[in-house]
Amino acid sequence: MARSTSRDAEALFHSLRSAYVATPSSLKIIDLYVGFAVFTAVIQVVYMAVVGSFPFNSFLSGVLSCVGTAVLAVCLRIQVNKENKEFKDLPPERAFADFVLCNLVLHLVIMNFLG
């Protein structure tokens, strides 16, 4: 049982990788960006667990800025993904403009909340 599971997992891993290699590079950049944001968020959570949650607003804005960035990037990724049929009509430029606007709002709020 265990062996079959691990073999399955291996096969799964392989197929995942092969499928991912096929994704266009612009999407890969977004993925990298998302990964970076999530990584930063996790580091902050760990730091908070160690140091304590005293400047709670700073912690909140720090983590939420990372999470927000990641979420928005995922949204962008969904929209510019050419395979996604739901957004065929939405030009990527427009999607990107929306993304920039959304990010600006996010970071404005973060700046406000950080202190």
Partner: peptide, 28 residues
Amino acid sequence: YSSRLYIAYAPLVVLGTLLASLVPVVGF
């Protein structure tokens, strides 16, 4: 579920929570 649902919901939670914490009466 559709990716539109994700776009409608996920940014709302993040941005909404942040903005809500800006209102002093709600705060943390």
